[in-house]
Design a protein around this nucleic acid. Structure first.
Lengths: 225, 225, 225, 225
DNA sequence: AATGAATGAGCCTTCATTCAT
DNA sequence: GATGAATGAAGGCTCATTCAT
């Protein structure tokens, strides 16, 4: 887990001590899971502490209080997602493929990061008040929107895409479909069964979302979405 | 301490008493607002009681415990929404107009029933476990899907719509876009500003969603969504 | 302790229950001693609870929080002292004797109510902020000042007292000497020994204070203080 | 994370370091204010540290624990006040003027050293147990009493003062009046208004206290106090 | 001589819930 | 049917202090 250096330190037990960053990271990791699982008020500091390599006391030592810890968890979650988006390499693909890949990535990325989705849901329940402070999050300059803008420009120049597409609104639409797929799965499944949540259902849904988005931007839409 | 002069006014004061249904309805009304505002664990029985015409004790008397109250609130919320959907009269409209109207209605209906949206979010946070019990909710026979099915059939017969559209998946897509619009407004606005949430932004968004949905089903799609 | 009525109640254990006033009075009694002994921040709710017939939980049930409990203790202490002052009957004494008796009473009353003195000291450490709320306390119409005013008027009419004595300032002087005697006994004794705090020392001190006060008001002062 | 560029500025930054006495004095200065403001249990080591040029850790390093720090603060406060009293030069004044000046000085000195007054109050709340250790404080040979003794002797020789005046008891009376004026100002003001605490009220009070004290000792008392 | 990191013990308070009639 | 009084269990958080170098 932690870097092994600290050669001179004799005792094993204290290997992770004296390394505040490691302790903080450990707490954040556990806290993210707990907050995602139970919400801000539902999560228990005690429970977080018990799943940590340190004590409840340390949580307050490093993060001041429960709410601040939650804030940092949220911020870190947002940043992690953005880092993930950056890794996509779309520059060498033609616009249609690039957009297609971006949508598929978003779909799968959301699917694979349920904790992030849940944290965002929870934060929306709190009306987003804990997002206020973080300047990096609020900038609006997300990799996803930047990439979309670039793809749309290239597509427009090649006369493939309509010229009046707003990158932010397109991002909104992609997000809505990919986010809802994860966020509302529990209730949707209870009410309508698992047709959509099944493996085959998800495969079809992903394709359908790609088609829907493509049709939104194509100068000459194709049938079927 | 305890004034005894209660005899003459007892009738007046207790007019709403002796009417268990009225008391329960009052509690449910307040509880719905509180649960929608703060979630299941975030809501306080105390706070609910204080906004009620009766006492905290009565909440437990009528609803057993907090979770059961939440369950009833949730069930009632679902039922109310379905009642709202039933009121739509789409039979006399041609398929395209009927679908268009249905989407617009869903968009506005969600917008106007934020508490319901929030309750569904909250329930999804809880992985939908409180929806298990209610048989009426789980039937899957929602007015919305029934209406969609009817519209799609008519449209297919008139060769307007593609023949392979699944009503449930279409419902899913409409829901996703209209639900996300309300559920994620707080965080989306914090990150990207109020371009979409503004009055003009919402008007355009509604039109765009209608076009997106129509293009999904039209045999001959039109450009622009 | 509590009134024995409640004949129909079978169990002895619950005799004091169902009598909120008795429970509150019990808590107040214990809390007064604890706050007087350790101050507001120094007193422990736990300790108060343990010396009570009820539990820690009940303290918050009846008094909301520690500070409110302290406030009520303080208020009650002030009221109790005023009740004690009222009991004095000075109307039938000639002015000099009345004043003399009042001073002696104040001296002894303070001596015998160290807890009250300590509470006032503690409240002064807090700059009196907890006295703000109570209207009865702040009225300024204390029995002591009222009685002084009456005595001074009688004495002036009989040409015994100087005509320019302000009752409030006289009250201030009496208070200062009698209060300080109790409040500063610990440090004064540590520094200067127990000459003054001894039984004989206190007897002489009381006489001296009486003479000092009398000389303050007499038209023709006597030698010796 | 940990910048290493410390070499060039290390001398500058640590100018006050390496000087234990300066650090201790700094801590004592801050601690006195905090203890005076909030009492022994009410003061926070954390708060003291934050207003200091050094860290919380150093407080324990130099003073062992909170209580010992308080003890040193208390002792220093007593010594400071005595130093102040020494500065008075009363030898060249006639007894009446000397005594008058001493009282006026005490009145003003107490007024101007509220922190000292509050520390003494606090220590009295603690029943003076922290004064035990300090031998210098307990000697009883305070400048104030010494000066009083000298003045009384001169006054007695000149037949101005009564021969039976005990310097300690006189000191007690002066202290009581001047101390109470500061110590009980908050509660007295809340109850009786600011008649006495006002600037004019204080001026009159000082005069009255001087007269009261003089009348205590004069062989031929004058009317009016 | 000096200090950053860590902490056990205990604090006040709140929670949903039950007791007892 | 209805309710005022009471509460066990746990909650988040803070305190002065020590560990380890």
């Amino acid at each position: 887990m932690t870097t092994s250096a600290k050669t001179s330190t004799s005792r094993q037990r204290t290997s992770w001590k004296q390394d505040p960053e490691a302790v903080k990271a450990d707490i954040l990791r556990v806290a993210r899971a707990e907050f995602a699982a139970h919400g801000l008020s539902g999560a228990r500091v005690q429970d977080i502490a018990e799943k940590t390599k340190t004590s409840k006391r340390m949580i307050f030592y490093y993060f001041k209080d429960k709410e601040s810890l939650y804030r940092e968890v949220l911020e870190q979650a947002y940043n992690d997602v953005r880092e993930g988006e950056k890794a996509l390499e779309l520059e060498n693909l033609d616009p249609v493929e690039a957009l297609s890949k971006l949508v598929k990535f978003t779909f799968s990325h959301h699917r694979d990061n349920e904790d992030f989705i849940r944290l965002v849901m929870i934060e929306n329940i709190h009306r987003g008040i804990h997002l206020t402070a973080s300047e990096t999050i609020r900038s609006g300059n997300t990799p996803a929107v930047d990439q979309l803008k670039e793809i749309l420009e290239r597509g427009r120049e090649m006369k493939l895409f309509r010229p009046d597409i707003d990158p932010l609104r397109l991002h909104w639409k992609i997000s809505a479909l990919c986010f809802f797929n994860v966020s509302n799965e529990p209730t949707f499944t209870r009410v309508f069964g698992d047709e959509i949540v099944s493996q085959e259902g998800q495969r079809k849904l992903k394709e359908e979302i790609v088609r829907t988005i493509l049709n939104s931007v194509l100068a000459v839409p194709v049938s079927g979405s």
